[in-house]
C-alpha cells in the first residue's frame, strides 16, 4: 500500500518519446488520462447529438450543456463574444471531465499538476491579449490606464493594473491546481488513517468509523469541487474576455 499521500501525483512514463532539448516528450500517465478525458468528451457528445425535434434524456443533456455555456458567455461577456464559445465550451468540459475522471480510484488527476493548469491559463490569457490587440489595435493597452484621471494618479494606477493583469493567469492556474491537489491529499490521508486504526486492533478499529464517515463526506465535497472549479475557470475566462470588448472600463 502506498503510504505517502503525495505518491498519487507521481508522473510515470508509459512509453518513451523523443527528447527535444530539455523537453522530454514521453507519453506519461498524465498524458494518458488527458487523452481519456478528451475521448470521453467526444463519446459523451457523440451519444447526446441525436438531432431529434423532441429530445430524449441523452439529447437534452447535450443541449443543456450547450445552453449553459452559451448563457454564461452571453451574461458575463455579452452577445458579441459568441465567437469564443468553442473555446469556453472546450475548456469547461476538459477540466470537468479531467476532474471527475480523477475522482475514480486508480485514476490520475491531470489537473492536480500546475504544469497542466498553467498551460490552460496561459492559453486563456494569450487569447485575451491576441484577440484584444487584433480587435482594438494598440488602443487595447488602455486597459492599463483608464481615461479621465489626474496625471499623478497614473503613476499609481498603471503598475497596479499591470500587476493585476499578470496575476490573472497565475490565479487561474493556482486555484484549480490547489483545489484538486488539496482535495486528493485530504482524501488519501483520511483513507490511510482508516487502515492504521483498523490495523492497530479491535478497540481502535471501532474508532475507525469516524474517518470512514469523514472520507465519505470528503468524496461528496470533492465531486462538488470538481464541478465548481471547472465552472469557475470557465466563468473567469468569460470575465477576462470582457477586456477584449470593453477597453474603457
Amino acid at each position: 500500500m502506498a503510504n505517502n499521500p503525495l505518491d498519487q501525483f507521481k508522473i510515470k512514463e508509459i512509453f518513451d518519446g523523443p527528447q527535444i532539448g530539455p523537453i522530454d516528450l514521453s507519453f506519461t500517465n498524465s498524458s494518458l488520462w488527458m487523452v481519456i478525458a478528451s475521448f470521453a468528451i467526444v463519446v459523451f457528445f457523440g451519444l447526446t447529438a441525436r438531432g431529434k425535434l423532441i429530445p430524449g434524456r441523452l439529447q437534452s443533456m447535450g443541449e443543456m450543456s450547450h445552453e449553459f455555456i452559451a448563457d454564461m458567455l452571453k451574461d458575463t461577456t455579452g452577445p458579441e463574444a459568441v465567437k469564443f464559445f468553442p473555446y469556453i465550451f472546450t475548456i469547461f468540459f476538459f477540466i470537468l471531465f479531467a476532474n471527475l475522471l480523477g475522482m475514480n480510484p486508480y485514476a490520475f488527476t491531470t489537473t492536480s499538476h500546475i504544469a497542466v493548469t498553467a498551460a490552460l491559463a496561459v492559453f486563456t490569457i494569450l487569447l485575451v491579449v491576441v484577440a484584444g490587440i487584433l480587435r482594438n489595435g494598440l488602443k487595447w493597452f488602455k486597459i492599463f490606464a483608464p481615461s479621465g484621471l489626474p496625471l499623478i494618479m497614473y503613476i499609481i494606477i498603471v503598475p497596479i493594473e499591470i500587476i493585476s493583469f499578470i496575476s490573472r493567469p497565475i490565479t487561474l492556474a493556482v486555484r484549480l491546481f490547489a483545489n484538486m491537489t488539496a482535495g486528493h491529499v485530504m482524501l488519501k490521508l483520511f483513507a490511510i488513517f482508516i487502515a492504521y486504526l483498523v490495523g492497530k486492533g479491535a478497540m481502535t478499529g471501532v474508532a475507525a468509523i469516524v474517518p470512514i464517515l469523514g472520507t465519505t463526506a470528503i468524496v461528496a465535497l470533492e465531486f462538488l469541487v470538481a464541478a465548481l472549479q471547472a465552472f469557475v475557470f470557465a466563468i473567469l475566462t468569460c470575465v477576462y474576455l470582457n477586456d477584449v470588448y470593453h477597453v474603457d472600463h
Binding site: 496575476s167 490565479t171 493556482v174 486555484r175 490547489a178 483545489n179 462538488l224 469541487v225 465548481l228 472549479q229 465552472f231 469557475v232 473567469l236
Partner: peptide, 11 residues
C-alpha cells in the same frame, strides 16, 4: 460561497 472564498483569497 465556497468558490467565492477560494477565488478572493487566491486573488
Amino acid at each position: 460561497l465556497l468558490g467565492m472564498a477560494w477565488r478572493m483569497s487566491t486573488e
